[in-house]
Write a protein that binds this DNA or RNA. Structure first.
Lengths: 246, 246
DNA sequence: CGTGCCCTTGAAGATCTTCAAACGCAGTGG
DNA sequence: CCACTGCGTTTGAAGATCTTCAAGGGCACG
């Protein structure tokens, strides 16, 4: 059924950013020390606040990293797919997971427990460097989104979120690029810090302008360039917006 | 004059989180390979977009990390003080600084250039672990603030920002805790994703309620507990707010 | 004593949320 | 085969929240 969810598995471990640059033997050792973990769609890998016991590397499927506010409001920090690492902070004994990781589709992951992990990091310095690079990339991305949330309005943020998803999980289909995961209005709202109602209105308008097509938890971007224009707050190609900010 | 700006210098390098756990000799080697850098208040350490050439460790002073949006809107990501490291991503050749680092007060820093840095990381594994821990702490904090920005309203966010600053640079004074840096309404607005006008109104109200005292670029928190109540969206101690959200 | 910077406050209005109601497709069961 | 039901979506209307603009006040420093 849900062919949307079929993300390509990682064929060669060596391609995962976390493991890049490791020698063949090192790769083998690292792989040997991992355990495999499977999570069904809807299941949870770990929850915010739990002690961080393992680092994961995704092989198949899709996982969503979220935080929940005291009042129940949920925020999506990131989607993670094959090749991506999750929970780099598992290295540090005292830490708790800062997010909840829930499987959006049936997922398969490699897992390294903390003790194993520390040993591996000792023996394979490139691993540490890779992990640091991943961490700093994440940091950069979150900082960027923080700035966006602080300075931009909803339509811009939604445009940016869609563009990111296109880059991350876009799949060419006739007439545009399909965002290749189940993505409800609510999901988009939680990605951009708004409500599902506002997302719905904005998408409706864009659909009217021929920028995209959207259905039940599905989005196909037909004119990415138009989204870029909106994200960058340029004069829109068609017309659409009323006026700049005074 | 500006006694506000006098943050205590780091006496012992070993206390800096970045260098913790290094042996005495290692410390000495690491210190020997650093160069000293001074920046006057108002000066710039590095700018967003420049190639990241060095990692810094602050000894004295205070530095502000900011991002600027295309339309000129500025966002403050973090204040950095003695003992804190800046620009951990300098390790990676290709990277550009994701933020601008401006000195808020006269500052003194140790600097390690990229090549030296990579060598040091090779020879002193604890350094890499420390750096990773720092990165993951930053990540956690930014994610937290992201969630706040996405789910909370302005007053809550300002309360949280003040509480963080109290923890970070609070100094007991008679009648409360002084936030020990030059902090204008504009600064607070850039920390919380709002405008200086809104900050002014909120602070005025809190001042009226006896929660804090504020003057020209200065804030003294008199009743931190009240701020906590506001940050957590509890019923305020005095009265103040109209009603919860729907 | 002036000048600059920061702060305050009012008023108007834009933007976004909230609530309510209804639509429509997908999968289910009769 | 059709109706039913659930869930995601749409849309209107009302209103809260926050921004924007404008004007003025006041403290610090030269």
């Amino acid at each position: 059924m849900k062919s949307l969810e079929k993300a390509q598995p990682v064929r060669t471990l060596a391609k995962a950013p976390l493991l890049r640059g490791l020698s063949a033997e090192a790769l083998e050792e690292v792989a040997a020390k991992a355990t495999e973990k499977k999570v069904r769609a809807g299941g949870t890998l770990f929850r915010e606040g739990e002690p961080a016991s393992a680092l994961y590397l995704m092989l198949e499927g899709r996982v969503k990293l979220t935080q929940v506010a005291a009042d129940g409001h949920e925020v999506i920090l990131r989607f993670v797919g094959p090749g991506d690492a999750v929970a780099a902070l598992a290295l540090f004994g005292d830490a708790a997971y800062p997010v909840t990781a829930g499987a959006v589709s049936d997922s398969v992951l490699m897992a390294w427990h903390r003790d194993v992990l520390q040993e591996l990091f000792q023996h394979h310095p490139p691993l540490a460097v890779n992990a640091m690079r991943l961490l700093s990339e994440r940091l950069r991305e979150v900082q960027e989104r923080f700035r966006e949330l602080a300075t931009e309005r909803v339509a811009q943020r939604i445009a940016r979120a869609l563009l990111r998803l296109v880059r991350q999980v876009g799949r060419r289909v006739e007439g545009g690029v399909l965002i290749d995961l189940t993505l409800s209005r609510q999901d988009l709202a939680e990605l951009t810090g708004t409500t599902l109602y506002t997302v719905s209105r904005v998408l409706s308008e864009w659909e009217g302008q021929g920028i995209l097509e959207s259905g039940r938890a599905k989005v196909v971007v037909k004119r990415p360039h138009a989204l870029v224009a909106i994200a960058e707050d340029l004069a829109p190609g068609t017309e659409g917006r009323v006026e700049g900010r005074g």
